[in-house]
Design a protein around this nucleic acid. Sequence first.
DNA 1: GAATTTGAATGATACGTTTCACAAGAAAAG
DNA 2: CTTTTCTTGTGAAACGTATCATTCAAATTC
Lengths: 330, 330
Amino acid sequence: MKWGSAPTMKDVAREAGVALGTVSKVFNHGTVGEEYRQRVLEAAARLGYQVNSYARGLKTNRTYAVAVVLPNIINPFFSVLTQNLCQALTKRGYRMFLSITDFDPEAEQRYIHMAQQNQVDGIIGLTYNPELQVADQVPFVSFDRYVSPNVPCVASDNFGGGQMAAKKLVELGCERLLFLRIGSTVAGESDKRRDGFESFCCGAGVEHDTLYLCDSDGYGPFRSFLENHIHQGHLDYDGIFCCTDGLTLEIQKMLAGFGIYAPQDVQLIGFDGTAIHMGHTPECSTIVQPIPLLAETCVDILLKEDRSDLPSLICLPVSYAYGGTTRDGV
Amino acid sequence: MKWGSAPTMKDVAREAGVALGTVSKVFNHGTVGEEYRQRVLEAAARLGYQVNSYARGLKTNRTYAVAVVLPNIINPFFSVLTQNLCQALTKRGYRMFLSITDFDPEAEQRYIHMAQQNQVDGIIGLTYNPELQVADQVPFVSFDRYVSPNVPCVASDNFGGGQMAAKKLVELGCERLLFLRIGSTVAGESDKRRDGFESFCCGAGVEHDTLYLCDSDGYGPFRSFLENHIHQGHLDYDGIFCCTDGLTLEIQKMLAGFGIYAPQDVQLIGFDGTAIHMGHTPECSTIVQPIPLLAETCVDILLKEDRSDLPSLICLPVSYAYGGTTRDGV
DNA sequence: GAATTTGAATGATACGTTTCACAAGAAAAG
DNA sequence: CTTTTCTTGTGAAACGTATCATTCAAATTC
């Protein structure tokens, strides 16, 4: 063994006085006699041998690495999701290779390409590029977004969550509901929150309005909208469903600026419930996404051996959690 | 080229009618005639060829991958740091392997081992295992914590930050200061916040107290401490420096429960300032860590060619940001 | 005890690159 | 016209592993 460079199997074999293949078997699933196994393990320990995973990857075409492509991890929902993905992958013996796109469609494509350069056993992506090219070569699971017919999409039951929020608000006495949304221009599963909300309202004959914004619009339009619907210190709506916990908090602050407080004057329900997954009590009443389950499911589907007959959309159940902005205090 | 398996350089060479080595040169820094280069590139495009980075890694011993080992990424400080690390690495053409230890010393050691066996080009770690074994083989940069003599440590100027906080509070009229800390039992650079705080107080002859807790203690002791120092609705301290923005918010809530409000009754300063890096205005006045710079510095030092003569500790400058919990409102 | 099966060690081969010594031709120098 | 220098294409030889067809001995069966 040359000094300075890492010891190889050949070194271990020489040190242990066995054949190369025997050493290989020890570090894989081969059957090796107990005596030989010990000899090899000792020699390996003595030399500080570690498997070279690049040589292994070259031979096996398996890398035990999965690429996770996300717009960012600053948004608590994404950071909690990432952490759960990381744990789910680790549990199965996989490592996580994280790419952050910052919502840049080109970056998304670039990362997907890079990941496919034979470096990864699969990709989990939350992408906004509507014309993303994904080679069938590498297993791909999409989060929240439809990519192409053969790419499974994992998401929360956004429709059900929207219904749940509206139903809850009505049960708590609300009579004029409002749905507020801000997000990407590219539609995803999460936009079904509105559909669920409207479906319930229409079905139950509840008065309701909707304000649907894109990130580029900023919060300004919310402010003017609310302003236009406040008369003599009184808001036209008594229940608001916001597409996100983050938005809920912003709206709460905004309304407080107008002297309108939750839950006395208006009840607010958000979506995500990440605070719960962070071990805190939620800062607002919310529809909780089952993040750990979402992560597990993504990984399960991604690593499924049988790649034929994959589901195209998996919706996972959400739940409601009280968090102070509604009048169902525990 | 066998169907179903990715095309190799050999396939490209055959397709282009050139030698294997020529193809290789095209995808590296070799000098190749313009005509040949075109032929190769076209053939590669036609075949959809992509470099197999495992074979490349095997030959070059360079993987362009860096492992990042963190306790979690749910804490906003860590998630912002991770995002910045990711960007800094990407900018230099490196990929990021992310491992989450959840503060488990064994997991830390396991991940470091794994990272080394996976032949990453370097490791950036924030670890709490006091007896962490790090092979000199792989470059290592530690965040906030001293690991061993030859492992550079990158951190904010925590001492200076502590001084700054105390100074600011005094400038804003505080006369009895309190420092509150909760964190790991393992000491790190961030514990110098207290030292800086005390240094200033002692130097300036300011009355001050300190409460130093570990995670396992929970917030209970804070509550009792504060309770014991409230007499007739009046807190003994008029300025509190909390070791973290998160703690600041907790303390603020706790005090509000006692009818004591910031900044009227007491001024609070936190540490981290992640809200700023997330594009929000901070929720509390705070000492801001220069997270982008921290990330850049970690990466710079990690990837420095000349590994001799590395600094053992790099302290980066912090700054103060107003956030509503002090009386210096803009 | 001979024949057969089983279990385990062996070592050559291939994976897809990079690299390097060489060759071949063109250009420059004498 | 010869010699030298440069440029650029070539193909063989690693890199460290997994695999597989062999081989060899021991265990089992008849």
